[in-house]
Nucleic acid binder design. Sequence first.
DNA 1: CTGCATCCGCCTCGATACTG
DNA 2: CAGTATCGAGGCGGATGCAG
Lengths: 242, 242
Amino acid sequence: MSKRSYGQYCGLAHALDLIGERWSLLVIRELMTGPKRYKDLLKRLPGIGTNLLAQRLKFMEERGLLERRRLPPPASTDAYDLTDLGRALEPVLIGLVQWGYRTIPRPQPETAHFPGWSVLAMKAVFRADLAEDVEDEYEYRVDDEVFHARVKKGVLTTGQGPALDPNFVLETDGKTFLAVVSGEMPMDEALRQGRMRVAGDEDAFARSTALFDLSPLHERDDETFPTIDLTGRPAPGAHRLR
Amino acid sequence: MSKRSYGQYCGLAHALDLIGERWSLLVIRELMTGPKRYKDLLKRLPGIGTNLLAQRLKFMEERGLLERRRLPPPASTDAYDLTDLGRALEPVLIGLVQWGYRTIPRPQPETAHFPGWSVLAMKAVFRADLAEDVEDEYEYRVDDEVFHARVKKGVLTTGQGPALDPNFVLETDGKTFLAVVSGEMPMDEALRQGRMRVAGDEDAFARSTALFDLSPLHERDDETFPTIDLTGRPAPGAHRLR
DNA sequence: CTGCATCCGCCTCGATACTG
DNA sequence: CAGTATCGAGGCGGATGCAG
């Protein structure tokens, strides 16, 4: 029952009392892109073990991080959804993603990957300083997952499901997608090989590749790596797009 | 030896592979305020167990988060210090502190607390939007710990040890300090009772209490609660100080 | 005395089997 | 489908040992 607390008066220690145990933050990550059913969580968290997932869900529900919800009529079972408190962890997740990408190893054959994980990654690598004058909407279809991004006045919002009025729709399979986002394969090559297709406005697509800097993460130098900005100052060397 | 990895291609999962285990982030927190010796870490992390601390230090040193350093001559033993990679976790720690303070319970008699933990807390509750025109330096002496804050052009920097040219020096004991920062005791009362003393510029002290909003954390409404700002937009209702 | 390594009991984790 | 029950393996926490 996880009665182990650090017993410190410290915001960090208390935060870790709530979400510091194994799998907890990954459950939050899954719910960050929308409500999920129990079995979906199991599928997207390979290795968690069913008892532990149940325990984590119960624990975080009791603490007010998430809640069990009855889905609208067509669905027969419940789903889990974040509360405002749980959703407030988004900046922390983004910060951890940014930090993690500094040293993430290249994907191995057995490395798990779901396209939806890239929604957080997009927010992590988003260049808000280049997006002041951009107003776009992009749709991504990878395997059976569909998600979208909306850029407006320097702000990025994302969600699962199709976009309302996308400037382009990108379509590919999970293997190609992973190869591209991990920097193993240049995007142009995936397009040339026909393993990735983009339908819509070419200029918007060019803008999107600048806004989401998917360029080889492993060779990137720290100077240009975006990090959470506590002061709101523009990054050095930043220039307007368009 | 902690060979357990999530095996996911996701910045968050990889970050948790590095700092997701018990005590890891608290070790980082300790080193965030400056290099520490092994025994100091043990003392400031009650309950960790000596073997586990050694294991965590070794693990994180191998991964490049921290390094063992020989201290300047007067010291006889080594100390541990963060690398740039480890120090890059600061925004994440601040974000977690901000989030943790939303639900942190009132301190109990057995709750551990070291004054230095408040250095991170200051950064977490700092109102940068009020500090644009402030240029101050404050010194805090609590029990045997001394630390300082420097505010300049909306930016806060902190450190252990005395300030160079402080506008005021605040002095108190650990018990009173905890009571005040946890909102159990109003700062005025601590001053009136003589349990806390402020020597120096009264106006600067008034500014500091506005910049570091120590007002009752437990009753605070979410609207005014500072959170990490990814966009650099000023908080709603913010006004200039001075 | 500091900086660990070893040992030991307990709790957590992860996999599988089972139930409403 | 959504969990609960069970169990072996390993991580954790506390005490102790020991080398520099």
